[in-house]
């Protein structure tokens, strides 16, 4: 992939060069994490309640018993009555696979098997984990038994299986109440290098400068740039970089009253504004203003960036997608110049 001229070309050689020149700022790391809470409805709820209580349930569907239970007949789509049947604890392996290097999300940290297991009394198979001494302990047609974790939450992870010969006898005291909700903490990590233009942008921020890119096709200055001019559909390169002033005009703002949610660090209201820097053709968004009182803040206000000391500047939060200025700006302060009229900034509303 080449971005060196306005006539795109693909060349493996160029691509490798770009990889070599790629960022020596650390890669952007981010996490997508949320503790999802799922209400189960009556069928899944009954199934998970039974797991908590050390039992495996199926549901009657015509002449068959389905495990795990479904809310509907898979053949017709008709809603099923909650006609549950206890199945297992024994079951038969219908297929299996030995996982030599478990992932962090698997039920076990040491090697184990996933298997399709038909519990005794059921006509369908459940896919679940089998803890076994080794792959030699497993074979299609082999017998397994349900096992339950010591700590159970009314979740599918309360359960696992073991080969009959290795299974433990367990006494599972029943819990109280019906499980109506189950939790799943989903946590994913991502890491990608800063793309070349974003690396230059981030480095400039560390130097106390704003770098935008001027489109060779339209002459418009994009800040922060995405590395291309989307209107003319032209890739941009280092030679399109331009320094943009650190003074500008507030063109839009709101006051954010933080909503509390998992991972939220904000607690107090603050102004979030967009600033059209002098020399840029589109506003720089998501500038948080915490030192100018709301009564003195307005669109049209002339402001300048006050930079943190070099040692305190951080671009850890600069990434390839969002705008943002990391943590390099201490605050924005009014310059004292007269306001810019609404008509002049009307079209820069972002």
């Amino acid at each position: 992939m080449s971005c060196e001229s306005s006539t795109p070309r693909v060349s493996d050689g160029v691509h490798r060069d770009r990889l070599r020149r790629m960022s020596s700022l650390p890669p952007v790391r981010y996490q997508l994490e949320y503790p999802y809470t799922r209400t189960t409805g009556p069928i899944v709820g009954a199934f998970l309640t039974a797991l908590r209580d050390g039992k495996l349930l199926g549901i009657r569907c015509g002449s068959r018993v389905l495990c795990p239970p479904l809310e509907y007949d898979p053949a017709s789509g008709e809603t099923l009555a909650p006609d549950f049947v206890e199945v297992g604890p024994g079951g038969t392996i219908l297929s299996w696979t030995w996982i030599a290097e478990p992932s962090r999300k698997h039920p076990f940290a040491k090697p184990f098997a996933f298997a399709l297991i038909r519990p005794d009394g059921a006509d369908t198979a459940i896919c679940h984990a089998v803890a076994a001494s080794g792959p030699e302990a497993l074979h299609t047609g082999g017998r397994v038994r349900t096992q339950y974790r010591a700590e159970r939450r009314g979740a599918i992870t309360d359960l696992y299986f073991a080969p009959e010969a290795e299974a433990e006898s367990q006494y599972i005291p029943p819990g109280k109440g019906a499980v109506e909700m189950t939790e799943h903490l989903i946590s994913l990590e991502f890491s990608e290098p800063l793309s070349p233009h974003r690396e230059r942008y981030a480095r400039a921020l560390l130097d106390g400068k704003f770098i935008g890119q001027r489109s060779p096709a339209s002459g418009k200055v994009y800040l922060p740039s995405k590395g291309y001019d989307p209107i003319e559909r032209v890739q941009m390169s280092e030679r399109d970089d331009v320094v943009v002033a650190d003074t500008g005009t507030v063109v839009a703002y709101t006051v954010i009253t933080p909503v509390q949610y998992y991972g939220q660090k904000e607690t107090e209201p603050y102004i979030r504004a967009s600033v059209l820097l002098d020399g840029a053709d589109q506003p720089l968004g998501q500038q948080d203003i915490r030192t100018i009182p709301l009564a003195e803040f307005r669109s049209g206000l002339r402001v300048r960036a006050v930079w943190k000391s070099r040692a305190e500047r951080s671009v850890v939060d600069v990434d390839n997608r969002w705008g943002g200025t990391g943590a390099v700006i201490e605050r924005w302060e009014p310059t004292g110049e007269p306001d810019v009229s609404f008509e002049k900034i009307r079209e820069h509303n972002w």
């Binding site: 981010y30 996490q31 709101t254 991972g263 939220q264 660090k265 904000e266 998501q286 969002w322």
Partner: peptide
């Protein structure tokens, strides 16, 4: 907010 703090919704 893309799973980050400071979402403006």
């Amino acid at each position: 907010g893309g799973g980050r703090s400071g979402s403006q919704g």
